[in-house]
């Protein structure tokens, strides 16, 4: 499913979507923005699982929150790198410190990077799970700020495609964008399940090793 969607997205980007005034550089947009939105989704999912852990004490919610945030950081890193490449072509520089969207996304990314420092500095157990859950919930506040910053900012360096008047692009471009976003969400879900299965197996094996010791 993920492979088909990714293949379909690449085919649509290069053979179906028209090149607009941004030139060939616009092809980066079809992966860059879906990757950024997917990282928001991963952080949001991580926060939801953290909330479930704190509220209902759902078994395994802490691990699911951790894996989702790990995915979010990976997709966040991809967002920063692809965005920098796009900026280099469009603006002639790798990074613009005056752009609120870029800086806020970097803050969000670094905030969640620090999540791992917190997690691995506390011994495994209920205390660590609670601390990490609270931290993940604090981080989720940054998501709407980061998303809305561009729309509230006075400087309009960063292009805005989705406005209150709807998407500012042709139907073929929007369709391509939607397929690319579905592909990224599917990829994130696949990697999430893959990593989660590995982590659960690892935890089971540790328990088994202790029982057999």
């Amino acid at each position: 499913m993920t492979t088909v969607l990714l293949g379909g997205a690449v085919a649509l980007i290069f053979f179906y979507a028209p090149v607009d005034q941004d030139g060939l550089n616009q092809k980066i947009f079809y992966f860059h923005v879906p990757i950024a939105l997917t990282s928001y989704a991963c952080f949001g999912w991580g926060a939801l699982k953290a909330f479930q852990h704190l509220w209902k004490r759902t078994p395994g919610a802490d691990l699911e929150s951790y894996v989702a945030i790990h995915q979010g950081v990976i997709f966040g890193a991809m967002t920063l790198v692809t965005g920098s490449i796009w900026a280099k072509v469009r603006w002639g520089v790798w990074w613009v410190w005056g752009d609120e969207q870029l800086v806020l996304f970097l803050v969000l990314f670094l905030f969640y990077c620090a999540y791992f420092m917190l997690r691995f500095s506390v011994d495994p157990g209920p205390q660590r799970a609670n601390l990490c859950a609270v931290y993940a919930l604090f981080g989720v506040v940054l998501i709407p700020i980061s998303f809305l910053a561009i729309r509230l900012a006075n400087s309009y360096i960063h292009p805005t495609v989705f406005t209150s008047n709807g998407p500012q692009m042709a139907t073929s471009q929007l369709a391509t964008f939607c397929v690319a976003w579905a592909a990224m969400l599917s990829l994130a879900y696949f990697l999430y399940r893959f990593e989660l299965a590995g982590k659960r197996l690892d935890a089971d094996l540790k328990e088994l090793r202790e029982l057999l010791a």
Binding site: N25, V81, T82, W86
Partner: peptide, 29 residues
């Protein structure tokens, strides 16, 4: 062209990220 090189680099970066991640996970498994 330079623009084509940058676009190729952006896609290559995404591919490499996913590839490295999958390889690390495969090693762990």
């Amino acid at each position: 062209s330079t623009e084509e090189k940058y676009v190729a680099a952006a896609y290559l970066v995404v591919f490499l990220f996913v590839l490295v991640y999958v390889l690390i996970m495969a090693a762990k498994l």
